[in-house]
Computed example of a mutant assay.
Amino acid sequence: MANAAVVILAGTDGHENMGRVVNGLETAREFAETDGDEVELIFDGAGTQWIPELEDEEHDYHDLYATVQDQAAACDYCAGAFGVEDAVADAGVVTLDDHDGHPSIRSLVDDDYEIITF
């Protein structure tokens, strides 16, 4: 059994960032599909911009995103700062504001989650 928090920090600009988000989604899916594992998928910083992109059913990786969408959350502060607050809300993605408007990575570490960033 493993506990993992996959944190997507990569923005939507550039081919390399597409690779990061896809690798992050694949990693989250692997944990989600493994019995006994727990996974949190957190879109933070510029990564929050991926939510409206991946919600689009025409996006190449929408289906992959859909497999882990139930584990997804977004930084409340960053969703507003990057102009995707309404899109995140429309998608039904939970926002996290545990630590000054941001997700608490420390709480995840305290709960024995491995933190994996993309």
Rank of each mutant, 00 (worst) to 15 (best):
L25F: 11
L25C: 13
L25W: 06
L25N: 07
L25H: 04
L25P: 07
E26T: 13
E26M: 15
E26Y: 11
E26S: 12
T27M: 15
T27Q: 10
T27A: 13
T27D: 08
T27W: 07
A28I: 09
A28W: 05
R29C: 00
R29A: 15
R29E: 12
E30A: 15
E30V: 09
E30L: 15
E30G: 11
E30R: 13
E30Q: 10
E30K: 12
F31E: 04
F31C: 10
F31W: 13
F31S: 09
F31T: 06
F31L: 12
A32R: 14
A32P: 03
A32L: 15
A32M: 11
A32S: 15
A32E: 13
A32I: 04
A32V: 01
E33P: 00
E33I: 03
E33C: 10
E33H: 10
T34H: 09
T34F: 02
T34C: 04
D35N: 12
D35I: 00
D35Q: 14
D35P: 13
G36L: 03
G36E: 08
G36A: 11
G36M: 02
G36F: 10
G36R: 01
G36P: 03
D37F: 08
D37K: 09
D37I: 00
D37W: 01
E38S: 13
E38T: 10
E38W: 02
E38Q: 10
E38A: 12
E38C: 00
E38P: 00
E38Y: 00
V39A: 05
V39C: 07
V39T: 07
E40G: 01
E40V: 01
E40M: 03
E40Y: 01
E40R: 13
E40A: 13
L41T: 02
L41C: 05
L41Y: 04
L41K: 01
L41D: 06
L41F: 03
I42L: 12
I42A: 02
I42N: 02
I42V: 09
I42C: 04
I42Y: 02
F43I: 00
F43V: 06
F43A: 05
F43W: 01
F43K: 02
F43M: 00
D44G: 00
D44K: 02
D44Y: 06
D44F: 10
G45D: 05
G45P: 01
G45T: 02
G45V: 03
A46L: 04
A46T: 01
G47N: 03
G47T: 07
G47W: 04
G47D: 05
T48R: 07
T48M: 07
T48N: 06
Q49T: 08
Q49V: 05
Q49A: 14
Q49K: 14
Q49F: 02
Q49N: 14
Q49Y: 06
W50H: 10
W50S: 03
W50P: 05
W50F: 08
W50I: 08
W50A: 03
W50Y: 08
W50T: 09
W50C: 07
I51C: 07
I51L: 13
I51V: 13
P52K: 10
P52W: 02
P52D: 09
P52L: 12
P52Y: 07
P52S: 15
P52H: 08
P52N: 13
E53G: 06
E53K: 14
E53A: 11
E53M: 14
E53Q: 15
E53F: 05
E53T: 11
E53R: 12
E53Y: 06
L54Y: 05
L54T: 05
L54R: 07
E55K: 12
E55A: 15
E55R: 10
E55L: 10
E55N: 12
E55T: 12
